[in-house]
Computed example of a mutant assay.
Amino acid sequence: MQRREFMFSTALASAALVSSPFSSLLARQEAERKFKIALNPGTIGVKANYAQTLDYAIQYKYEAISPFTQEVMEKYSDGQLNEILAKMKENGIGYDSANVPVEFRRDKSKFNEDFKGLRKFCETMEKQGATRINTWIISSHNELTYNENMKQHAYRLGECAKVMKDHGIRFGLEYLGMRTMMTQNRYPFIGSMKEGKELIGEIGESNVGFVVDSFHWYCANDTLEDLRTLKPEDVVVVDLNDARLGFTRETQLDGKRELPMATGVINTKDFLQGIIDIGYEGPVRTEPFNQELNDMENDVALKLNMEAIKKALATVGLK
């Protein structure tokens, strides 16, 4: 999802070319939100299939949903798919991103086995009208050095990206910024935006970009200026989360986060401003991995999740 209160470059140009009152008016006009708030039910503990998720999205005013591509492959006839696609279109609901169905982190045989099914998965996504796949990069390894790990990731993810490109799909890679994860294995690997750029450069495919997560952005000590180095096409998905109280930036743990604005540990306003400034136009979703949220009734979790996102948007003047 994307939000642009105003594009950074446009704002600069406007400041130079128009008077102050008109500039203020222009900024307010450009603050109208164009990106979509996405619902990935599993990340907030909501158990729902494709059709149920669509109903929840309609009820709670979400604007994009996970594609549930594996479910579509296994259970949907063409007629059933066309029916749900028509319902999505009628309610103005698009797609978030799907997790890559290939295990690329383990041995070569496992990668090759999973890779065989990727094209069918992408063909189904194309039939659905879904255009984004994502994954995460573990930031340490017990056997592979940084360079060895880089080579393996670049090859395997590059092969996946080529198949995705054939079907109009962009591939988002999420760097994990926790310092605790970088030290949990013998050899540290990618744990910041700058290192993520190196991997994307090694892959060398035009459809590969970032999953930018506010939690990992914070843990990596990345900044607003780091975000502003990106182009809109560099970002495939945005995850919006907060970090737990009682931990330093260096001691935060993965899998334990908060809904956006829950603690104020992360500078959500700066994070969103960076996303706005580059003109990002894709899904924005939460991924708090929060047990308290997971234990709530579905309706409560869906409502609280949307309220948290709206509260975060308000910090940059968006609704």
Rank of each mutant, 00 (worst) to 15 (best):
E5Q: 02
S9N: 11
A11N: 12
A11F: 10
A13H: 09
S14G: 12
V18N: 06
V18E: 07
S19C: 10
S19A: 12
F22N: 07
F22Y: 06
F22M: 08
S23F: 11
L25Y: 15
L26T: 02
L26S: 07
A31Y: 03
A31H: 03
E32W: 04
R33N: 07
K36D: 00
L39W: 08
T43R: 08
I44S: 06
G45L: 11
N49Q: 07
Q52P: 02
T53A: 01
L54N: 01
D55E: 13
Y56E: 02
Y62W: 01
A64F: 09
F68C: 09
E71V: 07
V72L: 03
V72S: 08
K75Q: 09
K75F: 12
G79P: 00
Q80T: 00
L85S: 10
L85E: 02
M88V: 05
E90W: 04
N91G: 03
G92E: 12
G92F: 06
A98E: 15
F104N: 03
F104K: 11
K110P: 00
N112K: 09
E113R: 15
D114S: 11
K116G: 05
G117L: 11
R119D: 14
R119G: 04
K120I: 12
E123Y: 11
E126H: 14
K127Y: 01
Q128Y: 04
A130D: 07
N134P: 00
W136N: 12
S139N: 15
S139D: 12
S140D: 08
H141I: 10
E143Q: 09
Y146L: 03
M150L: 15
K151T: 14
H153F: 13
Y155R: 06
R156I: 08
G158W: 03
G158I: 09
E159S: 12
A161E: 01
A161S: 13
K165I: 03
H167W: 13
F171Q: 04
G172D: 03
Y175H: 06
L176H: 07
G177A: 05
M178L: 02
R179K: 10
P188H: 02
P188K: 00
K194D: 09
G196M: 04
E198G: 01
I200Y: 07
E202F: 00
E205Y: 12
S206E: 15
N207Q: 13
N207V: 02
V212Q: 01
D213T: 06
S214C: 12
W217Y: 05
A220M: 05
A220Q: 09
N221Q: 14
D234F: 09
D234L: 02
D234C: 10
D234Q: 10
V237C: 08
V237I: 10
V238H: 03
D239A: 02
L245N: 12
T248W: 06
T251L: 07
Q252H: 15
L253Y: 11
L253Q: 14
G255S: 13
G255I: 06
L259H: 05
L259M: 13
A262Y: 03
T263H: 00
G264S: 12
G264I: 03
N267R: 08
T268Q: 08
K269V: 00
D270R: 06
D270F: 00
D277A: 06
G279F: 09
Y280V: 04
T286L: 08
P288A: 10
F289S: 09
E292Q: 15
E292L: 14
E292Y: 14
E297G: 06
N298A: 15
D299H: 15
V300H: 11
K303L: 13
A308L: 11
K310T: 04
L313C: 00
T315S: 13
V316G: 02
V316F: 11
K319D: 12
